[in-house]
Design a protein around this nucleic acid. Structure first.
Length: 235
DNA sequence: ATATCGATTATCT
DNA sequence: GATAATCGATATG
């Protein structure tokens, strides 16, 4: 049973020094770590897909436009949440990297839920069906108790597969979370390590960008079902 | 299976 | 005025 997707080990926060490095290194090492939402509705999920965005020299990075009101967190101290709003619809989560004064960050692209699946479904606007005494057609959800929600496979995957989806599942918004210190368990949002070692790290070009498309700075766990699907036609 | 489109706003040219 | 680190829906093969 110790498939180790779920560990009962204590989750301890990653120190600020972890983030005070090249975003490519931070991105790779964030795979397998845990995003925690401390809430009235607590949620945790394992990080399975990320992208690194370098500083002002990376034309695909938001910091390429310089230190503005929008991007100031990327230029500040490491380990803080940079949230941006995109396409008039979606928030996306990053963590700032590199020392104070130097830009850089890692975008969270996909998570594997560990706890609080019902809360994530609700945050995503899904109707929860509770099976009575008849057979269930839905999947057993990770780390679930007797108050399980029933979701289709597709609904479960789509909870946290993609940067906009995972942010919605964790109720992440810019007004609420931009600038949040992700190294402190006292924060509503933080990142921890339960000792899990991951295998099968793969890389690819980053998704959805039009500049620096040759750089292989997307990192993901090969075969993990929550990793986002590369969309059919990328401009 | 791939392709296209609308949503809806912050930011930049 | 155009574009964007996206998603969900719809049309078509």
């Amino acid at each position: 049973m110790p498939d180790a997707q779920i560990s009962s080990a204590k989750i301890h926060p990653l120190p600020r020094a972890f983030y005070s490095r090249d975003p490519r290194r931070v991105a790779r090492e964030l795979l397998g770590k845990i995003l925690v939402r401390n809430d009235p509705r607590p949620r945790t999920a394992r990080i399975v897909e990320v992208e690194a965005y370098l500083g002002e020299k990376d034309p695909a990075s938001h910091s390429a436009a310089g230190n503005t009101a929008r991007t100031s967190v990327l230029f500040g101290p490491p380990g803080h949440a940079y949230i941006y709003f995109i396409y008039g619809n979606h928030y996306c989560l990053n963590v700032s990297c590199e020392p104070d004064g130097q830009a850089g960050g890692v975008l969270f692209r996909a998570l594997e839920p560990l706890s609080g699946v019902e809360e994530m479904a609700q945050a995503r606007g899904l109707e929860i069906h509770r099976p009575k005494n008849h057979g269930s057609k839905g999947l057993d959800l990770p780390n679930s108790d007797s108050t399980n929600a029933e979701l289709s496979h597709k609904e479960l995957i789509n909870l946290t597969s993609g940067p906009g989806r995972l942010s919605e599942a964790f109720s992440i918004t810019r007004p609420r979370d931009n600038g949040c210190d992700l190294t402190s368990p006292a924060s509503s949002l933080w990142i921890g390590d339960d000792g899990t070692r991951v295998r099968g790290i793969r890389t690819s070009p980053r998704i959805g960008i039009t500049k620096a498309t040759d750089k292989p700075w997307r990192y993901f766990l090969h075969g993990n079902p929550f990793v986002s699907r590369v969309r059919a036609k990328q401009k």
